[in-house]
Nucleic acid binder design. Structure first.
Length: 597
RNA sequence: CGGGAAGUAGCUCAGUCAGGUUAGAGUGCACGGUUCGGGACCGUGAGGUCGGCGGUUCGAAUCCGCCCUUCCCGACCA
């Protein structure tokens, strides 16, 4: 490809306050935004996307996946049958066709796969199967952000496993677990696997594959000592021992101006974890029904784990309550607790650690007052008890007791053990050897292609621009001619020779100053630059330079061979790096819990 | 959806507080010339419903109201 004919050039500037990786993808002419969270891929970006897709295909095929294609537009009816029409909020984009029928833009394809299975799988002989496609998804996210990090329209590689039992599901799950690590390694992105939330996909066990970076929007909890790793949404710290001190009688105590945990702790001269903190939320427990006040009770030094709270009360949606909503239920902000609220005013969920502690301090629902000697089981027997406190840095690991650490990351893919929820609601069954019908056991596995691209850009750039791995770069070689005349002809000849040798070349043939070409080459991040100039030509040589390496010259006559050799070296180095990343996989699989079977 | 900010040339932004000639810069684009190994220089030129609608005013990019769009921070996910 000639730069002179390329659709989409580079830009000198990009909007401020965007992620660096996003700015570079914009400036390099890889992507362009059309609307919030909706992007076009320009030719260079598209080629990189295709490279990533190729890696996905190879790894999916390798584990026995069969590529296919499923529709983007689904009848709403199908989603009503699995309940997701009601259980998913506005993230699911709904509309009607000309006949007034409900339709949805797919945000994943569990329904369609299960529906396909009803007619394409009938016997245990038709199992196991793994199908996948790489296709557009739409999720009307409340807030798209960070360029490709979080878009509304995006490409996902989603695969689905169909098995007769949990043992089969476990095999497919482990195969994907390994493949996802391989894919990231091949794309040049270091990732870790963490326990994840099964969320709207339903199901039981889930892992997420995360690129660790401070700009990530996920919070992960790690134990350096035993390797426990989980998204904070599902992370659990070790539970404290149950208190054994005798229950004391409740006693109101005046705490003027003490509306925060810190103030109460200091005013009563006690530690924060001796306080039962109440956090108020409003939850939509059933679609279309009025929202309900939900009070979460955690120890004073803990934060509420919203995902866990949401799962505990099976909420469709949940958000922090406003002061007005708290007051409407009879609560006094700053001094609130579920204790003493009118019967049924709120759904109360207490953290297990609160249940185990005795004689805590909590709000009196009266301005300026708290209560000593609060005991959950005695004073609030109706409260639900669950693990709704978030595991934070420094808390003891549930597996080994070592202090946990917290980091940020970008989730590029995840895997779910679905079980039989979808197959049961859509009637996807198979017949076993004895003629009995059973629901098919399903798994689902997703990778965000654009998000992976964002991770690649985040990992591979410097102040000059992108520095892409050969495995995903839009072209292998960036040929640059400096000057016209003989140089131009020599460059043309080399361009043809490189292409004839089967190499993918971006040829900057524009009649512009060398500095412009070099700056653009650096910005686009193609791994190998080849320069033909009067200076090199005078000695019958051309220059080879890796994106971040030192230039060297090679004889003009051997240029094609030298370029091929250099590309092989780059490829070998990347493969070596990937092997290093993957060396730990067997141990990781060994110590990772994948469920029974 | 809550909080904050912004919409002016293809792009990045001044100008708006304090209303008043023909609305600016840099960059990009076109043409000419000089250059030719790190976004070089000189000249000429094209390019704008100042996000939209309404209001105030002799007069609105500027003040007021409503709406739309976009970004950032929170609550949600590949």
């Amino acid at each position: 490809m000639r730069v002179s004919g390329l659709f989409g050039g580079t830009r000198r500037s990009a909007p401020a306050d965007e992620l660096v990786s996003h700015q570079l993808l914009l400036r390099a002419g890889f992507i362009q935004q059309l609307a919030t969270g909706i992007f076009s891929y320009l030719p260079l970006g598209w080629r990189t996307e295709q490279r990533v897709r190729q890696i996905l295909r190879e790894e999916m095929n390798r584990l026995g996946g069969q590529e296919m294609s499923m529709p983007v537009v689904h009848p709403g009816e199908l989603w009503k049958r699995t309940g997701r029409w009601d259980s998913i909020d506005e993230t699911l984009l709904r509309f009607q066709d000309r006949r007034g029928r409900d339709m949805v833009l797919a945000l994943s394809h569990e329904e369609v796969v299960a529906e396909l299975a009803t007619s394409n799988v009938s016997s245990y002989r038709d199992l196991p199967r793994i199908v996948y496609h790489i296709q557009t998804k739409f999720r009307d996210e409340p807030r798209a952000r960070g360029g490709l990090l979080r878009t509304r329209e995006f490409t996902m590689k989603d695969s689905y496993s169909l098995d007769r039992d949990r043992a089969g599901l476990r095999r497919a799950y482990v195969a994907h677990f390994q493949a996802y690590l391989r894919i990231a390694a091949r794309a040049g992105v270091p990732v870790v696997a963490v326990l994840g939330d099964s969320g709207v996909m339903g199901g039981h066990l889930a892992h997420e594959f995360t690129y660790l970076t401070d700009v990530g929007e996920d919070t992960l909890v790690f134990c350096e000592s035993c390797g426990y790793a989980a998204n904070q949404e599902v992370a659990e710290a070790a539970l404290p021992e149950a208190d054994t001190e005798p229950l004391a009688a409740p006693e109101e105590v005046e705490t003027p101006e003490a509306t925060t945990v810190a103030q109460v702790a200091s005013s009563l001269e006690l530690e924060a974890h001796r306080i039962a903190k109440t956090v108020a939320y409003m939850a939509e427990l059933e679609r279309g029904r009025p929202w309900r006040l939900v009070l979460a009770l955690v120890l004073g030094d803990a934060e509420v784990n919203l995902a866990q709270l949401r799962n505990t009360v099976s909420a469709v949606d949940i958000r922090p309550a406003t002061k007005e909503e708290v007051e409407a239920a009879g609560g006094v902000p700053g001094y609130m607790s579920p204790r003493g609220l009118p019967e049924g005013a709120a759904l109360v969920v207490a953290d297990e650690a609160v249940r185990r502690a005795r004689n805590l301090v909590t709000g009196a629902n009266r301005a300026g007052w708290h209560v000593r000697n609060f005991n959950l089981e005695r004073d609030l027997p109706q409260a639900l008890v669950a693990r709704v406190a978030a595991a934070g840095a420094g808390e003891p690991c549930r597996q080994c007791g070592s202090p946990l650490s917290v980091r940020r990351g970008i989730e590029y893919g995840n895997i779910f053990q679905l079980g039989t929820d979808y197959s049961q609601s859509l009637g996807a069954t198979f017949t076993d050897e004895d003629g009995h019908a059973h629901p098919i056991v399903m798994g689902s596995y997703g990778i965000g292609v654009g998000r992976l691209l964002a991770c690649i850009a985040e990992e591979h750039h410097d102040e000059r621009g992108l520095d892409l791995p050969l495995a995903v770069a839009p072209y292998q070689v960036n040929l640059v001619s400096v000057g016209a005349g003989d140089v131009g002809e020599a460059a043309e000849t080399l361009y043809r020779s490189l292409e004839e040798a089967g190499l993918e070349v971006l040829f900057d043939d524009r009649p512009v100053a060398p500095g412009v070409k070099f700056a653009d080459a650096d910005l686009r991040g193609i791994p190998l630059r080849v320069t033909v100039s009067p200076r090199t030509l005078a000695q019958r040589q051309v220059e080879l330079k890796r994106r971040r390496g030192e230039p060297r010259t090679v004889p003009q006559a051997e240029a094609v061979a030298e370029v091929g050799e250099e590309l092989r070296r780059i490829g070998a180095e990347e493969a070596g790096w990937a092997e290093g990343q993957l060396a730990q996989v067997p141990a990781l699989v060994e110590r990772t819990y994948f469920g029974e079977g």
